[in-house]
Amino acid sequence: MTALSLRGVTRRYGERTALAAVTLTLPAGQTLAVLGPNGAGKSTLLRVLATLLAPHAGKLEVLGHPLPQESWAVRGKIGLLGHEPMLYRELTARENLRLHAKLHGVRLERVGELLALVALERRADEPLRTLSRGLVQRVAVCRTLLHEPELLLLDEPRANLDPAACEIVEPLIGRASGKTRVLVSHDPARALLEADLVLGLARGRTAFLDAPAQLDPQGVAELYR
């Protein structure tokens, strides 16, 4: 089954093109790594896939649903882990997750289960603003996974995590999770290890699209030039 199918997907901000005619397909269960310098369009791509931005041109199908026509059908099946945790700082981890569980129509027991999985039970009842960024990121991982999404959209998921925390979330959002993933990363070496397909973006245009084996260190350097 094809998880992602993009044909000429374009998104503009005013007169600036953030994403220019991106075309690719990703089979279910595989990982797409998106590389490129800041402003290359990586986050825009994620937001388009997450139904938060509608493409201006091109055809886009996520999990078999055309976007933006069937955004509603896609929303319950994707998990977006972005720069922002999308959590209220004054609420506790548990309160935040219970809110999202209700937004998604998920049973509330799942909140406790997930908090246990990321080893956060002990601090689940403190306001988020008192937690370190690494711990907040773990809560955000829980938020992303609450509704058991089929497709994970990850924007530098390990940014604030120490090695121990990385190990904890690895089975949840890493390759081992078995889910289809789109992984935006500033750490190309790491991303290449995880990816089945690599998309290199430069000013919104596709600079590279192939298996990771085809990208040598010089090619990587080229992408970030």
């Binding site: 139904t51 922002e84 945790p85 999308m86 959590l87 209220y88 999202h100 937004l103 998604h104 129509g105």
Partner: peptide
């Protein structure tokens, strides 16, 4: 304010609610 500054809008929009 809290929705705009702490990503509450996106969190809500990502849900099927």
């Amino acid at each position: 304010l809290a929705d705009a500054e702490q990503g509450g809008f996106d969190g809500f929009l990502l849900s099927p609610a």
